[in-house]
């Protein structure tokens, strides 16, 4: 009805040229959407369809024979392989441990810096604490690899001076994964620290003063004031870190490539090795789809669990 009235107006105004104008108006939204649709198709949907298609074929990049359709074979062989089962467990251990460590440390550091914010020199401390983020992850990993070296590395050198037994940080299968986690914690705790600190600065000073007057202990200030206040920010940092950790790759490849044995062999490493060392593109596509599904499930469950808890200002407490 509204359109028709509009059309009548245009008819009157434009005269004989009306139909072209009308068509143009109707096409305009589609034309405006077109670039984003094209980009979406080209960058997301297209590759995704290609990925699924690849996962259904046996295809080795070194083979001149064309890819062979194998149905769900690639998934079947992936699921029955011990490599995959190990990689899944390692990935989860890596992500959960690193996440917990980064959160606890980032939070404690932020709380400490925030508490002492009025002391002179805290700006320098703050800057120093955040420098690890500035290092390229691959550089950080290689640097740590050198520091971890059992015979020449600086860490064991120092331990040697003190007379503590020198572990093979990256070559002891019981330690390697945690040594890599330590690198990730070193590099990414500052990220958590920075965002948590920003959240703390956003809390009105008067809230803390009110809490002090209310006789709140420093610990209760954190649990009853700080954390509830920026739960939403925490959730975002948590998700960002978790996604990053589930697909952590360069730090592992640059230090152990998944070894020793399979001590640090995570799912992303499996995908990389399958695709770019073995060139088995079908297997790699299947594995990366599985990884995608796992990450999506974990993230969705987490978001649900957290949103049920309610966020600042609404919902139950």
């Amino acid at each position: 009805m509204r359109l028709r009235r509009r059309r009548a107006t245009e008819l009157a105004a434009v005269g004989s040229g009306q139909s072209r104008v009308y068509r143009g108006e109707r096409l305009a939204p589609a034309l405006m959407l077109a670039p984003s649709v094209v980009i979406l198709l080209a960058l997301v949907i297209g590759p995704f369809v290609f990925l699924i298609d690849t996962a259904l074929h046996r295809q080795n990049l070194f083979q001149t024979t064309p890819p062979r359709y194998v149905g769900a074979d690639n998934f079947y062989y992936l699921f029955i392989s011990t490599k995959f089962q190990v990689a899944l467990v390692r990935m989860l251990v890596f992500a959960v441990t690193a996440l917990a460590a980064e959160f606890v440390l980032g939070f404690v550091l932020a709380a400490w810096v925030h508490r002492l914010r009025d002391l002179p020199g805290m700006a320098i401390v703050r800057t120093l604490l955040t420098t690890p983020i500035l290092v390229a992850p691959i550089v950080a990993a290689v640097m740590w690899r050198f520091m971890y070296q059992p015979d020449f590395g600086v860490i064991n050198y120092i331990l040697g001076l003190v007379g503590i037994p020198k572990p093979g940080w990256l070559s002891d299968p019981d330690i390697a994964l945690f040594a890599i986690i330590a690198i990730d914690v070193w590099q990414w705790t500052p990220f958590v620290f920075l965002i948590v600190l920003a959240g703390m600065y956003a809390i009105p000073r008067s809230l803390y003063e009110a809490a002090k007057l209310d006789g709140t202990s420093p610990w209760r200030q954190i649990t009853h004031l700080t954390i509830p206040w920026f739960k939403r920010v925490l959730v975002i940092v948590l998700l960002l870190r978790l996604i990053d950790l589930l697909r952590a790759f360069e730090v592992i490849v640059a230090t152990t490539q998944g070894g020793p044995g399979d001590a640090s062999y995570t799912l992303p490493v499996l995908v990389w090795e399958t695709a770019f060392v073995n060139f088995q593109m079908g297997d790699a596509a299947a594995a990366s789809l599985v990884l995608l599904v796992i990450v999506t499930i974990v993230i969705t469950l987490l978001i649900r669990a957290i949103s049920r808890q309610g966020v600042v200002g609404q919902g139950r407490r």
Partner: peptide, 21 residues
Amino acid sequence: WNEASLNAQEFENAEAFKNDV
């Protein structure tokens, strides 16, 4: 074997010879 073996790269093996390790 030397503990570094499990994760050593060629240069580390070379260093081990060069430094009498």
